[in-house]
Design a protein around this nucleic acid. Structure first.
Lengths: 205, 205
DNA sequence: TGTACATCAGTGAACGCGCGTTCACTGATGTAC
DNA sequence: TGTACATCAGTGAACGCGCGTTCACTGATGTAC
């Protein structure tokens, strides 16, 4: 940690990382710019050399989150290829894995109230990430007879909703909400049942 | 509105209602006790005649939410009887309907960080409400052959997760997240697909 | 019906706190000569 | 290799703000006689 000296060296990224940790611990609104500065070993005013303000700092954390998330989703998608089903399942799993591994990013992205329209860069990163899930859904919908095929955005929305719900309700220290099942199992079986409902996996238990 | 005079008349409930409105507008952390007091036409200090403090006020809002929610769920359940399927679907729909009709309560309950264990009263109200969904799931699981029957808590958790996800992502002013489908449709079809996956509704599109 | 008094809901001023943000500054670094 | 200087990252003190909470108080209400 080359943090000594008057100049920090890599303060910008150090601030983002301190923020992520704080956002993870205290939620998006419990997060304070001053505290992030303190964690980085620096005066609050120093933050303004690198960010326009508090919101800008959160937005950067969210942006980095969407980038990591997009990479993970793409990786999962490709790993499942050429099977549309395997790709789809893998992206669903990647969603939860991301939320667990990068809780600070997750909160900055989905609970901080930061608008995705804030910057073109943020918008692009978010669109790319969600696009992978939609692509996986579109691939998969090819295997459903056209006349009973629901719009692919619809079931990507379903999977997204279920994943998000599992994360929010069962994978984090939510208001006393405990489930007797690990979130991973919950999501895995939930998606399984759902895909069976679409006629995409074998109908046996 | 009999709000004139030195004494308010029904300040306690007026404060809860002002809080609900503010929580709905500004989120659980944007909410300020002082502002709720102002909306009720009263000094911040007056709040302490009725509540122990800020958190206590939020907890009361959440409690009333769980009570309304529980009533709605019970009503939906009973309305669907004697069909286990109709009851189950109705409770799922009631979840979304509640979130839309009582956004302040919803946020106080699920996003404020208030612990359900805070008071026995709150715990009881929450348990009753969620118990209806679990009951509906248990009824429904009777119709699945025992050897391939998943635990009822599991699919009540699935439905809860999907409902919650739909609400959070598509039914409220979330970060630029718009879906081309109304949340009601999204949830309705999502649950439909899911139930088909359990072999509980006819497998045609 | 009228007066004295207890109750207690709401007042208003004050507090300490942490926040985001600003500003003129200082001192470390790297470059030009 | 050594000196002068421009750059600019970080300082530290200060600001105004709104917050939750406290306190001694005041004045409306309802009850006892």
């Amino acid at each position: 940690m080359p943090k000594r000296g008057y100049h920090h060296g890599n303060l910008r990224q150090a601030l983002v990382e301190a923020s992520l940790k704080l956002i993870e611990e205290k939620g998006p609104t419990g997060f304070a710019l001053s505290e992030a500065a303190k964690h980085a070993g620096v005066t609050p005013a120093a933050v303004y050399r690198h960010f326009a303000g508090r919101d800008d700092l959160i937005a950067e954390a969210a942006l980095q989150g969407y980038q990591i998330f997009g990479d993970l989703m793409e990786y999962a998608y490709e790993k499942g290829q050429p099977s549309a089903l395997a790709s789809f399942e893998a992206t669903g799993r990647a969603y939860l894995a991301f939320a667990r591994k990068h809780p600070g990013h997750y909160v900055a992205m989905f609970e901080s109230g930061i608008s995705i329209q804030r910057t073109p860069e943020l918008h692009a990163a978010a669109t790319r990430a969600m696009g992978v899930l939609e692509q996986a859904a579109a691939d998969l919908s090819q295997h459903i007879p056209p006349e009973k095929r629901p719009p692919p955005q619809m079931f990507s929305a379903h999977i997204w909703a279920m994943s998000h719900g599992v994360v929010e309700l069962f994978a984090r220290g939510s208001p006393g909400t405990k489930s007797p099942f690990p979130p991973e199992d919950l999501l895995e079986t939930g998606i399984g049942v759902y895909l069976r409902g679409l006629g995409l996996v074998a109908p046996d238990g």
